[in-house]
Design a binder for these strands. Structure first.
Length: 826
RNA sequence: GGGGCCGUAGCCCAACGGCAGAGGCACAAGUUUUAGGUACUUGACAGUGUGGGUUCGAAUCCCACCGGCCCCA
């Protein structure tokens, strides 16, 4: 190569096309399942995408991050599993199919191919041989199989439950699809409706899911752990039994404040609970029914809102306070939810704001039983939930809140009227969906045998071939209309039976996909136990914070169940987690309605893949949001151009074969220090800083070429090569091109991570800061190995110190060799 | 209402309790160029949201307040 070959322009398109073709033939990133392969194994997982269209800016950030980490471990010589698949069931496909009179699979697989092509262009280091789609029968067969295992263990069960129902679209909506009480698609007022639904008994694992998080401390983002803890919502308190007049069996309520039991002046049951219907006296029936019609229009969130005015109706009946025998009225209200605890509470208006609001609205008594020193809640309308001394509470009088809780729990336990108890906010997971494009629930209903599980050998229960208008909402799952499909034989008695027409929540599909990747074609189970043992748990999981609660919680639940089934030898699926931030534009999330969307394809075409990947990485710490309006991808294009020129000039100087040790020492120090720092930065996922270090190395190499020993110096080649390998994590095309220019065989992806020579990291001389009273007054060039005493003497003799002291005496001297001395004056 | 995170040059961001500036953008000047652009070099710009406290020393730790974001109500 000669000087004439040095490119004066960086042309990303040309090198992208060139290397895409060559990489396709190389299969560089296939993970090895060979047991004889002794390289350390690393399982690096990116959250799989939903195929909603082509990849977008958010994907570009997430996969740039995950890919950099995966490529790092490859460079370190690990056997890396970095798979990809698609979370491919879900409602958008169904809506598209209705619109286009087609099958949801058409839209889904078309989008998957589009995204797969974009991933290829984006140069993500996936092991494509393990690709999976959750909507493939080979996959959802095992989703169904897992459902049946849960069913066998009593972890999948059916009960009547409330769902959000859109009367226009005639379908059930997820909570997230209900915006301010209205259907997000048609704007109709959503109503609550009782349907018989399948649930997973995740509450049985609440304590274990909570306990596990201690071990994830420091490995998962704090905010995710916090969100999960809040979501599980453990609270300690007591269960208290209340006799209800005219009812044989007492009703148990859970309270976190059993100490306030003497202040319970009324009793509230959820208006829409079976208990309310049961307790309602005939004379109040009409009132309750009228009230219920209103209640059913509300979402849980609205019902619990503190701002909303309290509503409720008296049920014409009384409960008895177990500690003082007092008759207290039983009310039905919507601020108590039917599926939380027992659907009933004891109301202590003096010390609970919602109870107080309710009491004031309906003229119910307020009795202070904890003297907090605050003003009377009945007068102020402000409840006093804080610490204080018990009053008006018989044996509890004079006790503190904590002592009273202990004492009353003891008393209740002794009398068989209650006991200490723990309650969780977490509810069982409703998995039924009245939708087509999901995994059918593998259960049939037989007139003779009742609910019957589909036998394993009949799996998968394939979706019928419905398309277009057949998928339009009709009030029941679209599957119900497929008579040929619904009507089947009972696996037990052979008689006529009907299939369950609901499909599973797509979160079920994604709760175990990471296990399938270990043996994606395995035909005798959801995964091969040995393969999972080899790869799992996942070393690093990369994905959006939007999955901080549900997906991560469900996956943890699945892994625990599978562990209990002795199919897994670990209980925590994701050892470490990184949540990348969002890509926003002008301060707001990109959205069609705001018209602030940025098209990834346009960005890639304009600046090239590598510059966009680098822009994403360099923008900010991975967990922070990136405001695209603040980004200048052309700056990274420029940077890549500088890298290419350095490599080309080194190549043109024809230095191959020179010993690095003979090279310019100053540049060598910079190179090795950069390697050392970048290594640490990548391992702690501080990739934005790592890129900044690479920029410095390029500048150092540039200076060495222009104003130092020149491009022919072996140290410059050493710098260029180390730079190229490190850059390959972020800008694989440019790095590959440079690697070839520097005279190496592809692929740079496997070149091996450079090693920093410790001898080049130690500095002989360092600058010591000399402070007087904490302010910098002088600096000294000293030997790095200088002793404290020696440094103290030098510092006290420094002219700047003398000047700053201005004759004052020295009180003490803080010496931190070799970098700092602080002289403290009187 | 409870809990958490974050406020550093015009902008994006660095800084084991120890020189506030690593890097980038934008800006200015210079070299190259017929010019522009490119490339290269150089420069200027903040004292860390506000007020206290701890410390020899605080952007960093603690408290309060202001502003923004998130989770739970």
């Amino acid at each position: 190569m000669t000087a004439a070959d040095i490119p004066d322009r960086y042309d990303p398109r040309a090198i992208q096309e060139k290397w895409q073709l060559r990489w396709d033939a190389m299969d560089t990133f296939r993970a090895s399942d060979d047991p004889a392969d002794t390289r350390p194994r690393t399982y690096l997982l990116d959250m799989f995408p939903y195929p909603s269209g082509d990849l977008h800016m958010g994907h570009a950030e997430a996969y740039a991050l995950g890919d950099a980490m995966a490529r790092y471990f490859v460079q370190r010589g690990h056997n890396v599993l970095h798979p990809i698949g698609w979370d491919a069931f879900g409602l958008p496909a169904e809506n598209a199919a209705i619109r286009n009179n087609s099958h949801p699979a058409d839209w889904t697989y078309r989008n998957i191919e589009t995204q797969a092509a974009s991933f290829r262009q984006y140069a993500v280091s996936f092991d494509w041989s393990r690709r999976l789609h959750t909507c493939d029968p080979e996959y959802y067969r095992w989703t169904q199989w897992l459902f049946l295992r849960f069913y066998e263990r009593g972890l999948a069960y059916r009960k009547d439950g409330y769902v959000n129902w859109c009367p226009i679209d005639q379908t059930v909506l997820a909570n997230e699809q209900v915006i301010a009480g209205k259907c997000e698609r048609c704007g109709a007022e959503v109503v609550r409706r009782v349907l018989t639904q399948w649930y997973f008994k995740i509450t049985e694992y609440a304590d274990r899911l909570l306990a596990d998080m201690a071990a994830l401390e420091g490995k998962w983002p704090d905010r995710v752990l916090l969100m999960q803890r809040n979501w599980i919502g453990r609270s300690e308190g007591a269960e208290v039994s209340f006799e209800i007049e005219g009812r044989d069996v007492p009703v148990t309520v859970f309270t976190t404040r059993p100490d306030t039991l003497y202040g319970a002046t009324f009793f509230v049951v959820a208006a829409d609970s079976p208990l309310a219907a049961e307790l309602c006296t005939p004379s109040e029936r009409a009132v309750l029914d009228a009230y219920l019609a209103d209640v059913r229009k509300l979402t849980d969130i609205e019902r619990q809102s503190a701002e909303r005015e309290k509503t409720g109706v008296f049920l014409g009946r009384h409960a008895v306070n177990p500690v003082n025998g007092e008759r207290i009225p039983v009310w039905a209200a919507d601020y108590v939810l039917p599926d939380y605890g027992t659907g009933a509470i004891m109301a202590v208006p003096a010390h609970d704001q919602r109870d107080l609001d309710f009491a004031r609205k309906f003229g119910l008594p307020v009795r202070v039983v904890v003297d907090t020193g605050g003003p009377d809640p009945e007068q102020t309308g402000v409840a006093t939930p804080g610490e204080g001394t018990l009053v008006n509470s018989g044996p509890l009088d004079g006790l503190s809140k904590a002592d009273a809780i202990a004492r009353i729990t003891e008393i209740l336990t002794g009398k068989g009227l209650g006991r200490g108890a723990v309650s969780y906010r977490l509810r069982d997971w409703l998995v039924s969906r009245q939708r087509f494009w999901g995994a059918p629930i593998p259960v049939v209903y037989c007139d003779g045998c009742g609910e019957v599980a589909v036998p394993d050998e009949q799996l998968p229960v394939l979706l019928p071939d419905l398309r277009g208008q057949e998928l339009a909402p009709k009030g029941v799952s679209p599957l119900a209309a497929a008579a040929d499909w619904v009507n089947t034989q009972c696996p037990k008695c052979g008689g006529p039976a009907k299939r369950d027409t609901d499909t599973m929540d797509t979160f079920v599909d994604s709760s175990w996909y990471f296990l399938r990747y270990c043996s994606p074609r395995f035909e005798h189970g959801p995964f091969e136990v040995e393969a999972v043992r080899r790869w799992c748990p996942i070393d690093l999981y990369v994905g959006g914070v939007e999955h901080a609660i549900l997906h991560l919680l469900y996956s943890r639940f699945f892994v625990k169940v599978l562990h209990d089934m002795q199919m897994l030898d670990f209980t925590k699926p994701f050892t470490a987690l990184v949540n990348q931030g969002q890509v926003i534009n002008h301060g707001k999330a990109m959205s069609k309605s705001l018209g602030n969307g940025v098209d990834l394809g346009v960005q890639l075409a304009e600046h090239g893949v590598d510059a966009i990947r680098l822009t994403m990485i360099f923008a900010s710490p991975p967990e922070d949001d990136i405001d695209w309006a603040d980004m200048r991808p052309e700056a990274l294009v420029r940077f890549l151009g500088r890298v290419v020129r350095v490599a080309a000039e080194v190549a043109a100087a024809g230095t191959a074969g020179g010993r690095a040790a003979d090279g310019d020492l100053e540049l060598r120090r910079v190179t090795h220090k950069t390697v050392d720092e970048v290594t640490r930065l990548v391992e702690s996922t501080r990739l934005n800083v790592a890129v900044a270090r690479l920029m410095e190395l390029v500048s150092a190499a540039r200076r060495a070429i222009d104003g130092g020993p020149g491009a022919g110096d072996p140290a410059v080649r050493e710098a260029a090569e180390a730079l190229t390998v490190m850059l390959s994590l972020f800008a694989p095309y440019t790095a590959e091109e440079c690697w070839e220019v520097l005279g190496h065989e592809p692929s740079v992806a496997r070149a091996g991570w450079p090693a920093a020579d410790p001898a080049l990291l130690v500095e002989d001389m360092v600058t010591c800061i000399v402070q007087v009273d904490g302010k910098v007054r002088d600096r000294l060039e000293v030997a790095a190995a200088i002793s404290g005493d020696e440094l103290r003497e030098l510092a006290l003799a420094a002219p700047g110190v003398d000047r700053a002291l201005a004759g004052r005496a020295v009180r003490t001297v803080v010496v931190r060799p070799p970098k700092l001395v602080n002289v403290v004056s009187q």
